[in-house]
Design a protein around this nucleic acid. Structure first.
Length: 553
RNA sequence: UGGGGCGUCGCCAAGCGGUAAGGCACCGGAUUUUGAUUCCGGCAUUCCCAGGUUCGAUCCCUGGCGCCCCAGCCA
C-alpha cells in the first residue's frame, strides 16, 4: 500500500538513462566508482559513490569498484584497504566487481602498440620543459615536436626500449599524434605513457612505463563494459580525447557524463590539502573526527544512512554548487533523533544540594520519549546533584523569556522532581559554587496543581556520577570558504577541538565504541572507536541539538 | 577577444511551450517532563539582463552580462 517510493529526486543523468533505455541505445546500466588509492575518501567521493551505486541498484545494473592505480609514486595499499572499508560502510557492495587499472597494464600496452603501428602515436624525446613550452597557450597554437614524424619502426623500437627500462625517467614519452593547434588543450598531442622507474603497489617492478589517466580510464571502462562513465565537470574537456582513443582502438565506447562536484561550506575537499592537514599534524589523522573524510565522519558518529540521505538531498547537477554544512547536520540529526538512546550528562558542572531530600532512589527513565519499545534504564537520584552552569542565572531576564533556574525559581529535573532554588553560595571570587534547593516531593511523574513549571533541566546524581572525557568538536575551518583565504591553513578554526571532562549518569560507563547517545538538551555523542577502553569511554560530540534558545540570546 | 560549461528564493534543486515541486535556512504559532522531536502556517506575480517568435516562454531564437574549468611526463 504505502509504496516505498524511493523518493529519489530526478536528475539529468536519470533522464539520459531513461531515454537511452527507451530508445534502445543502451540496454543495461553499468557504472563504476574509480578512486585513485592516493588518499582517503571524503564526502565528495561519497556523493559519487551514492550516485554510481545508487543508479546501478535502481536500474538493476551493476557498479564496479575500480582502483585507478596508474601512478605508482602516489599510491599505496593502505589507501586501497581504507577505501574498500569506506565504500562497504556506506552500505554498497561491488560483489565480484573489484578491479584495478594495473590489471590492464598488459592490455593497455598492446593498445599503445596498436596506435604506434597505425601511425597515431609517437615517441617524443623533448624534455618536460620543452614540451610545456611547445604546447602553446590558451590563445596560441602549439608547435609540433621535432620527433613527431619518426618512423613507425623507430617508434616501436624506442617504445620497446622504454618498456625494457633502457631509458631514464623523463628521457622519452609516448604521445598521441592529434593536433598541436587544437583549441582544446587536451588534444595537443597528449602524453600516453611516461617512464617511471617506480615500485607499484601491485605490479611491483614489472613495469617501468606507466599509462597516463587519459590513456587508461576510457579503456578500462570499455574493457569492463561500463555503459555510463560518470565523472566530475573538470573532465568535460577530456571527453573528446576519451572518445578519440576508443574509436582509434576500435573498442566499445561508453558514454561519459559529467556532473558538478560537491563543495561544502567550512571545509576543504582537495586530497592534496587533506593530506597536508594530516602530514602537518593539524589533525590527528585521516579519520580525525573533524575531517570531511568518510572515516572521519564515521568516527565522529555520523551514521552511514545520514550520509546517504545527504547525497540524495543535495541532488546532482552541472552548476557549480556550494552546499551549506547545515544540510549535512540536519541529515545527521534526523537519523540520530530516531535511533539514539537518551542519557543525562553534565559538561560544565554546578553543585546542587537538595535540602529536604535525604534518600537514594532508583528512578526509571525512558531511553527514548517517542519510542517506548526502546525500553528504559535506571537513573539514580540523591540529594547531591550536578547540573549545568548554563542552567542557573543569578539575574535572569524577564520570566517570559527565561525558564531555567534562578533565585526563588522552580524547574523540573528531567525524569525527576521539581525543585526550587532557595539560596546560592558564592566563593571568595564571587563565583557561584553551590545551589541549595528544595524539592516538591509530590511531583515525580506528575505535575503540581495550581502552577505550571515550564523549565526542565538535566542533571546527574553526584555520588553516582562517572567522569568521562568528552571531545567537543566544531568546524575545522571558521571561514565559509577556506579556499578563498590567502592560505587555507590560516582559516583553520583554533577552537575546533575542546577536550573536557563530563559527569555522566552511571549507565554510560558501559557504552561501547561507535555507540551514539543523545545527551539530553546538549547534543549527540558517540564513543570514540580508537581511544576508548573498557570501562573508560571517550565521547566525541557528533552534532549539537538544534538550539532556539541560543538564537534568542 | 582560444576551447568547454553554467546562470530558477539566502544555500541546494525540480521543471523540458500552458501559466514556479521539494529540502536546508529563516520567521510565526500549537503540542511537549529535552527551549529537542512532532505539528500547522509564512517564505520567487517570478526564473541573470535586453530584445524577438508565440494566443501563451523559466522552457524556443538573437544579443549582452556574470561565474566555473583547461596550458601535469597528476587523476
Amino acid at each position: 500500500m504505502s509504496a516505498p517510493e524511493t523518493a529519489t529526486p530526478s536528475n539529468f543523468i536519470r533522464t539520459i538513462i531513461d531515454e537511452d533505455l527507451q530508445s534502445g541505445r543502451c540496454d543495461q546500466v553499468v557504472t563504476r566508482f574509480p578512486p585513485e588509492p592516493n588518499g582517503y575518501l571524503h564526502i565528495g567521493h561519497a556523493k559519487s559513490i551514492c550516485l554510481n551505486f545508487g543508479l546501478a541498484a535502481d536500474y538493476n545494473g551493476r557498479c564496479h569498484l575500480r582502483f585507478d592505480d596508474t601512478n605508482p609514486v602516489k599510491e599505496e595499499d593502505e589507501y586501497v584497504e581504507a577505501i574498500k572499508e569506506d565504500v562497504s560502510w556506506l552500505g554498497f557492495d561491488w560483489g565480484e566487481h573489484l578491479y584495478f587499472a594495473s590489471d590492464y597494464f598488459e592490455t593497455l600496452y598492446q593498445y599503445a602498440l596498436k596506435l604506434i603501428k597505425a601511425g597515431t602515436a609517437y615517441v617524443d624525446s623533448q624534455s618536460a620543459e620543452e614540451m610545456r613550452r611547445n604546447r602553446g597557450t590558451l590563445t596560441e597554437p602549439g608547435v609540433e615536436s621535432p620527433h613527431r614524424n619518426r618512423s613507425i619502426e623507430e617508434n616501436l623500437a624506442l617504445f620497446e626500449q622504454m618498456k625494457n627500462g633502457e631509458h631514464p625517467d623523463g628521457s622519452h614519452i609516448l604521445r598521441a599524434k592529434i593536433d598541436m593547434a587544437a583549441p582544446n588543450m587536451n588534444l595537443r598531442d597528449p602524453a600516453l605513457y611516461r617512464i617511471l622507474h617506480a615500485h607499484h603497489h601491485r605490479t611491483g617492478d614489472t613495469w617501468c612505463i606507466y599509462p597516463m589517466y587519459d590513456f587508461a580510464h576510457g579503456q578500462e571502462d570499455s574493457i569492463e563494459g561500463v555503459t555510463y562513465s560518470i565523472c566530475t565537470l573538470e573532465f568535460e574537456d577530456h571527453r573528446p580525447l576519451y572518445e578519440w582513443f576508443l574509436r582509434e582502438l576500435e573498442i566499445f565506447v561508453p558514454q561519459q557524463i559529467e556532473f558538478a562536484r560537491l563543495n561544502l561550506s567550512y571545509t576543504v575537499m582537495s586530497k592534496r590539502k587533506l593530506l597536508q592537514l594530516v602530514t602537518d599534524k593539524h589533525v590527528s589523522g585521516w579519520d580525525d573526527p573533524r575531517m570531511p573524510t568518510v572515516s572521519g565522519m564515521r568516527r565522529r558518529g555520523y551514521p552511514a544512512a545520514a550520509i546517504r540521505t545527504f547525497c540524495e538531498r543535495i541532488g546532482v547537477g552541472r552548476a557549480a554548487s556550494w552546499i551549506d554544512l547545515s544540510v549535512l547536520e540536519d541529515c545527521v540529526r534526523e537519523e540520530l533523533n530516531e535511533t539514539a538512546c537518551r542519557r543525562q550528562a553534565v559538561l560544565n558542572p554546578l553543585k546542587v544540594t537538595i535540602t529536604n531530600y535525604d534518600q537514594l532512589e532508583e528512578l526509571d527513565a525512558p531511553n527514548h520519549p517517542q519510542r517506548p519499545e526502546l525500553g528504559s534504564r535506571v537513573l539514580p537520584m540523591s540529594s547531591e546533584l550536578w547540573i549545568d552552569r548554563d542552567d542557573f542565572m543569578e539575574n535572569p531576564p524577564p520570566p517570559k523569556k527565561y525558564f531555567r533556574l534562578g533565585p526563588e525559581r522552580e524547574v523540573r529535573l528531567r525524569n525527576s522532581y521539581i525543585i526550587r532554588c532557595d539560596e546560592f553560595i558564592k566563593d571568595a571570587d564571587g563565583e557561584i559554587v553551590e545551589l541549595k534547593c528544595s524539592a516538591d516531593l509530590d511531583t515525580l511523574g506528575k505535575n503540581p496543581e495550581g502552577r505550571k513549571v515550564k523549565g526542565i533541566i538535566h542533571w546527574v546524581s553526584a555520588p553516582h556520577a562517572q567522569k568521562v572525557q568528552v571531545r567537543v568538536y566544531d568546524r575545522l575551518f571558521d571561514q565559509e570558504n577556506p579556499d578563498k583565504a590567502e592560505n587555507y591553513l590560516s582559516a583553520l578554526n583554533p577552537d575546533s577541538l575542546q577536550i573536557s571532562e563530563a559527569l555522566v549518569e552511571p549507565s554510560l560507563i558501559d557504552a561501547k565504541p561507535g555507540e551514539t547517545f543523545q545527551f539530553e538538551r546538549v547534543g549527540y555523542f558517540t564513543v570514540d572507536s580508537k581511544d576508548a577502553t573498557d570501562g573508560e569511554p571517550v565521547f566525541n560530540r557528533t552534532v549539537t541539538l538544534r538550539d532556539t534558545w541560543a538564537k534568542m540570546k
